[in-house]
Simulated assay, not measured.
Amino acid sequence: MPSSSPEEPFAGKSPEEIQELAYGETRTAQFKKVRGQTSGDGMTGIVDLTFVWTHCAGTVRGQGLGTMELHATPDVLHVKRDAEAWRAALKATKAQEDVVVNRIGNRWIKLDAQHSNAKAISVSCQLHDPNIFLQWEAPEISRGASATVDGQPAIMLTYPGADGGTVTDYVATQGRPYLLKRTETGREPSEFTWYDFETVTQIRPPAASEVVDAGEL
């Protein structure tokens, strides 16, 4: 059992309580950023996102999947894909892909946030809430050693992942107990780092003059 001395971070709290506290603080932080990557099916996806409360903006890219920029709000999604990203998304004949790439490649389009395509595109914005990872019943969590994340002191919480790997949460021990990093080993390894908590940031959607009509896409 961990010591409960007053000097110890999270004295008297169980690992489950520490995780719940960290996820709550991270979820409710109005300003934050996340960078990271996840791998599966022989490909790696990389995200670099900024969050201002319920708004999200940044880039998502992957091997063979091109680069996509997005700006998402609860109502509207703006997205800009490069040619490689459009071809990967369309999976059409080259002639059909050429038409789309020539018309709107590397240009912003606008979608209603409830559109099925918009939901699929902006799924990365759910990273503002670490609870996205706990869509299954997590087993008992173990408190591990001290660590540092980008120079910030943290403790490690570990537990088995859903696919047989190991999940490690790094929780800040100074200031607010934010989740600083989350790693998972196994068939689909991933690593995400949250930072710049409550650093006031502005993210703006593209100007109307930069947005083109995407038709039925």
Score class of each variant (00 low, 15 high):
I46A: 09
I46V: 14
D48L: 03
L49Q: 00
L49H: 00
L49G: 00
T50E: 06
F51R: 01
F51I: 02
V52P: 02
V52E: 06
W53V: 00
T54P: 06
H55F: 09
H55Q: 07
H55S: 08
H55T: 07
C56W: 00
C56N: 01
C56K: 00
G58H: 02
G58L: 02
V60P: 02
V60Y: 04
R61Y: 05
G62Q: 08
Q63S: 15
Q63K: 09
Q63H: 09
Q63E: 15
Q63G: 14
G64M: 07
L65Q: 13
L65N: 09
T67P: 03
T67C: 04
T67D: 05
T67S: 11
M68H: 04
M68V: 13
M68D: 04
M68K: 09
M68G: 05
M68A: 13
E69L: 08
E69M: 06
L70Q: 10
L70K: 03
H71T: 12
A72W: 13
T73W: 12
T73S: 15
T73D: 12
P74C: 10
P74Y: 08
P74T: 11
P74W: 09
D75A: 15
D75G: 14
D75I: 12
D75H: 15
V76S: 14
L77S: 11
H78S: 12
H78N: 14
H78Q: 13
H78G: 11
H78V: 07
V79W: 06
V79Q: 09
V79P: 06
K80F: 07
R81L: 14
R81F: 15
R81T: 09
D82Q: 05
A83V: 07
A83T: 10
E84Q: 15
A85Y: 05
R87Q: 13
R87M: 11
A88C: 05
A88Q: 10
A89H: 08
A89T: 10
A89M: 13
A89C: 03
K91I: 09
K91V: 12
K91P: 01
